Simulated assay, not measured.
Amino acid sequence: MCGIVGYIGHRKAYPIVLNGLKRLEYRGYDSAGIAIYDGNELKFSKTKGKVADLESKIEADISTQGTIAIGHTRWATHGVPNDVNSHPHFSNSGDLVIIHNGIIENYEPLKQELKNRGYTFQSDTDTEVLVNLIEDVQKKEGVKLGKAVQIALNQTIGAYAIAVFDRRKPNEIVVARLGSPLAIGVGDKEFFIASDASPFLEFTKNAIYLEDGEMAVVRTHKEMKVRKIHDDSLVDPYVQELQMNLEQIEKGGYDHFMLKEIYEQPDAIRDTFRGRMLVDQGLIKMAGVDDHIDKFLNAKRIIVVACGTSWHAGLVAEYVFEELARIPVEVEYASEFRYRNPVIDKDDVLIAISQSGETADTMAAI
């Protein structure tokens, strides 16, 4: 899991992106980086470590002037956490720069194909493969950045939330989403891009949440366009008014976001049960009209498939369901389950839990 932030507009971009990364550091904190366009040059700085380490480094490395910038805070999946593997990543020409949350599962064959065409790679990441694939499409097809992103993404398998910038066309940022969250804050002749709304709440309450399989060309000189990635069809975006405030999303007095989330769990669980479940005499009854509710209520066995810390979450689920619902639960490693021919009855319910890093195994297990 990683956090991405971007800004294009009339304000100084650097402090907006930097503060946004600080708010998204709960999504990843082993490396961070920022790229800034100052009107002439595309400058960047990135480093292993936390956003505070980037802040110390960036102001010594480069000028922070500019009204367009993208930034990233990373939890490493492909490639160890070091300066080279940190985002942003550039294409071979240096014209394109990208930030990415997610996993491109077929990056290895794509990388080999690009190598055969003369591309070289500095990092071990799947993200550097993606940005060079976009550049290759631009060159071969002679298309603009937005179209190149769409064509390239239709060649990929995996999950992503991305923001791509082309220094040759410095009035737009192209964003896309599949399986990873992406919000666009809509201001007055300015736009904010982020993994959640926290980086831009003090600037605008209007936000568009891209749906899976959607992309947008965010630009200050023209109307923003949202399209479906698979067929390039136009989408009418829904702009919603956010009800959150900064106090709700900040650490709330806790030293770490993880501590905050731990102490908020009782309220979160109570809200969940109040909204979707009723607990009565030790039985959980699902409330709603979903087609799968009867299947869940009649389950003879629950199988939880997961990896990593998601597997540990499955162990907690095992305790809760067996204690309250008196339904037997089995928790399986997805990385082993995917290679088996498991015995699953029609009255069994399988629940998959995933996080960035283990998504491929979990999807294969399903």
Rank of each mutant, 00 (worst) to 15 (best):
L234P: 01
V239I: 15
V235P: 03
N245L: 02
L234Q: 09
Q248D: 15
V226M: 02
K222N: 09
K251C: 08
K251G: 10
M224G: 05
Q248C: 03
S233K: 05
I229W: 02
D236R: 04
E247K: 03
R227T: 00
E223S: 14
L234C: 00
L246A: 12
L234H: 06
K225Y: 03
E250S: 15
D236M: 08
L246R: 00
E250A: 12
K225P: 01
I249Q: 02
E223K: 15
Q243G: 00
D236V: 11
K225Q: 11
E247W: 00
V235L: 05
D232F: 13
D231G: 09
H230R: 10
M244E: 15
E241A: 04
P237N: 05
S233W: 02
D236G: 01
H230K: 13
R227H: 09
N245S: 12
R227F: 11
I249K: 02
E247T: 11
L242K: 01
D231L: 04
R227D: 04
E247A: 15
H221N: 15
L246I: 13
D236W: 03
Y238S: 13
H221E: 14
E241T: 11
D231H: 05
Q243H: 10
Y238K: 14
H221D: 15
M224E: 01
E241N: 12
L242D: 10
K222M: 10
L242C: 09
V235S: 04
K251A: 10
M244F: 11
Q243D: 13
D236Y: 06
D232P: 01
Q240N: 06
D231T: 01
Y238C: 04
K228C: 05
L234W: 06
Q240T: 10
D232Q: 08
V235A: 06
Q240H: 12
P237S: 06
D236F: 02
I229K: 05
Q240C: 06
H221K: 14
K228I: 00
Y238E: 13
E250D: 15
M244Y: 09
E250F: 00
I229A: 08
Q243P: 00
N245I: 10
L242F: 07
E247M: 07
N245E: 15
E223R: 14
Q248G: 10
D231Y: 02
L246C: 10
M224A: 05
H221F: 12
H221G: 00
D236I: 10
H230I: 12
N245K: 01
E241C: 00
R227Q: 09
